[in-house]
């Protein structure tokens, strides 16, 4: 064995093989999306010069705020290897209830209104999280059922009272309509949320444990991580953000019917997955999910500006989602193969 000592020493030095390019690409998903975003933007602007106008850019920026918020929450849930299909219904319920608060208390401060939205969402998340985490039932089935239930509740209440712009104070509608330093206030809120949650996801034990749970649930148990509590919290945060998104939705559209937010759960999942959040949990960033939402929205706008029927956006979103999962899978398979062959080559030294 001693003749291998020299090799052993050099082996120690080179034990960290050069990361294959393909693996690097995975890590720079955010960059790739940003690049795609720019390409779509420039391409469309060339075709339709009005696309690059200020008002159009503002449209690009305010449109996705709601989706960004729920995509951020959805990301937390997906990272723990679950899925939350209730977010669309929560947006609807929260939008309505916030409006209802204004009907009864027209002088409610904007901040309180937003807090009401958050509270409504968090309450929904509390229910979902409790069932998923403690009854140990697949989140897909549970949230599918709750999607119905919350949407039904929403519709029942909405049928009682209609809410429209006349019920809402100008200050609240301003949140949806006004700008601050050239950027819509809604987008500022989304940016702040992305920054705060993104920072939190990197820097606290609890959030890192969420990644650990999604990455290897068995090892997470062995490491003594409170798995159920973390999954529960992920759902509560997801609900709260969907609630906030609902309040902003109301501010943006100033009217609310029983279909508000319908289908947003799919947009949120698509945004997260396109943004590089692994559907099987364990990896992905908040920034990526937000960029994913921005990207999907920009494509929609670009389709409209490019003279393509707006009916394309749903198809494109679905296709992008499928492509994103397929790409992730391809990269994983490729990198595993590279590593297997590399392992052999190192063995042959």
């Amino acid at each position: 064995m001693s003749q291998h000592l020299d090799e052993a020493l050099s082996g120690a030095a080179t034990a960290n093989p050069k990361t294959p390019f393909i693996l690097k690409l995975v890590r720079f998903r955010e960059f790739a999306i940003l690049l795609a975003l720019v390409l779509v933007f420039v391409g469309t602007s060339l075709k339709n010069t009005s696309f690059a106008s200020t008002s159009s850019i503002q449209g690009l920026l305010s449109g996705p705020a709601v989706i960004i918020l729920i995509a951020v929450g959805e990301t937390l849930v997906i990272i723990t290897r679950n899925v939350d299909l209730t977010v669309g219904s929560v947006v609807g319920l929260s939008a309505y209830l916030v409006g209802d608060v204004y009907v009864h208390y027209p002088h409610t401060p904007v901040l309180v209104a937003l807090l009401v939205g958050i509270a409504v969402g968090a309450a929904c998340g509390l229910v979902t999280g409790t069932i998923v985490a403690y009854a140990r039932v697949p989140s897909l089935a549970v949230t599918l059922g709750l999607l119905y239930i919350i949407r039904g509740l929403d519709a029942v209440i909405v049928n009682a009272v209609q809410i429209n712009a006349t019920s809402l104070p100008a200050g609240f509608i301003g949140v949806g309509a006004n700008n601050f330093i050239g950027i819509p206030i809604m987008m500022w809120i989304a940016i702040i949320v992305v920054a705060v949650v993104g920072y939190a996801m990197r820097n606290f034990r609890a959030t890192r444990e969420m990644y650990a749970i999604g990455s290897n649930p068995e090892a997470a148990l062995l490491a003594g991580i409170p798995v159920q509590r973390r999954i529960f919290s992920a759902f509560v945060v997801s609900g709260a953000l969907a609630g906030l998104a609902g309040a902003l939705w109301l501010a943006e559209f100033a009217t609310v019917g029983s279909t508000a937010g319908t289908g947003y759960e799919l947009d949120a999942v698509a945004a997260a997955v396109v943004g590089g959040v692994a559907i099987f949990g364990g990896s992905g960033t908040i920034l990526g999910a937000a960029l994913g939402a921005l990207f999907l929205n920009t494509i929609n706008q670009a389709l409209v500006a490019g003279g393509v029927s707006s009916f394309w956006d749903q198809a494109v979103a679905g296709l992008l989602l499928v492509l994103a999962i397929a790409l992730d899978r391809y990269l994983v398979v490729r990198s595993e193969r590279i590593l297997r062959v590399e392992g052999r080559d190192r063995g042959r030294h």
Partner: peptide
């Protein structure tokens, strides 16, 4: 483990 890796483990 391969031989090289074994040697390193021994170290």
């Amino acid at each position: 483990l391969t031989e090289v890796e074994v040697a390193r483990l021994f170290d």
